[in-house]
Design a protein around this nucleic acid. Structure first.
Lengths: 217, 217
DNA sequence: GTGAGGCCGATTGGATCCAATAGAGGCGAG
DNA sequence: CTCGCCTCTATTGGATCCAATCGGCCTCAC
């Protein structure tokens, strides 16, 4: 079976990213080039390029002659990621919101209803991310979106751990904020939407740093 | 002569980045892997890895089977980069400023004096960047700094073009803002420093977008 | 028994070779 | 003369091979 198409290194990078984001590769895990190459039916060369790509995205950490490991963060770095998100995501919203259609906003509501219905952590993570990106979907200059995406990627593992120990109360606070955000967008009140979004991220950050035990494996 | 040390792909990436930032490779220029490999006395493999690295940094653009080109921006993308800087650099300042020593601030003043003394565009670009990074030097979580650095990198070419056509009046406005910023830092008035920095970047952005002709090569 | 030093396997880094693709230029038909 | 096809070459993408380096383990001296 020949490799179908597309640049192999991109394919490897996508696969590896997926494994990390899905939690199948924990922070600190060593990545051996040969193993990955064998599993993905390719040579080590695309794997090496993929590792460089993911290093630049912050998902893996390379050290000369010592191989690659899944990047791990401490609580300080994670907090800073959230502070960056607080400043950038409202900007992303401002770029995208004027072009949101009523149908787009209906779709957000539908996603939010599924968020409220699910009990599964993995499903929550997927849907929460989908909701945010539904808000940003009409941003046209991809650079900002790429930066923010990177922040979501590098903090995904800790967001999962945090979600696991979040109780029902916290979940409903999140849902309330999401509902407020969607309503502000529906009202075309973009300034309020920006503020709600900023507060939503800040509040999550403040809760997160109350659990430094998530960062000491 | 053997290659001294350090990972070759990093060395190639650094060299290529330097050439782009120095303006020796204009946006849109095609980069041929063989040529670069010959010039740097290495094989194409480190060059390929270097191109991946720089692609992730936004400095080069890769298209499958069509090689690499120095990334070019339109006025819209450049404006967005400045908007991002407006939000992130004050944050970077807030992280770093509390740890600035009096000597650090004296050094900034010295750099600013050199900025005011020079007539040379290249020297201005170097010193202006050095001044800003003197402000941010005590940031410890490198992720934010890396993001901002990337923004400086990708807009460097257009900053150069803009500086070339800036008259004496604009230069003195910039100098005034720099002086205000340094004074606020000296007074340990970090909130004002953040605001001055944000306004400094915003004003530059507003001026920049008045010259869309810089983006049509 | 313990610590230092050296050897060996595992793994990464780099070079060369071969295959696949895109773009340019020439050739022929209309 | 022009348009379209086709070959041919320059360049990129991928695989394999060889060299360099790191870390663990064993040995030996004290």
């Amino acid at each position: 079976m020949a490799v179908p198409a597309g640049v192999a290194s991109q394919r490897v990078a996508d696969e590896l990213r997926e494994r990390i984001l899905a939690g199948r590769l924990a922070p600190g895990t060593r990545i051996i080039q040969d193993e990955l190459a064998d599993e993905l039916n390719t040579s080590r060369l695309p794997v090496r390029e993929a590792l460089r790509i993911l290093e630049s995205r912050g998902l893996v950490t390379l050290r000369a002659n010592q191989g690659a490991r899944v990047t791990s963060m401490d609580v300080r770095e994670c907090e800073l990621s959230y502070k960056i998100r607080e400043r950038l995501e409202p900007l992303l919203l401002a770029e995208s919101a004027p072009r949101l259609s009523d149908e787009d906003i209906d779709a957000m509501t539908a996603v939010q209803e599924r968020i409220e219905a699910t009990e599964d952590v993995e499903e929550f993570l997927v849907l929460d991310r989908r909701l945010h990106w539904a808000v940003y979907q009409h941003d046209d200059a991809g650079d900002l979106a790429a930066t923010v995406n990177r922040l979501w990627d590098t903090t995904q593992h800790y967001r999962r751990a945090f979600t696991r120990l979040a109780g029902e109360r916290r979940r409903w606070i999140i849902n309330g904020e999401h509902r407020l955000l969607i309503q502000a967008l529906r009202d075309r009140d973009h300034t309020s939407a920006e503020h709600i979004l900023e507060l939503h991220i800040r509040r999550t950050r403040v809760e997160l740093v109350k659990h430094p035990e998530l960062f000491v494996p």
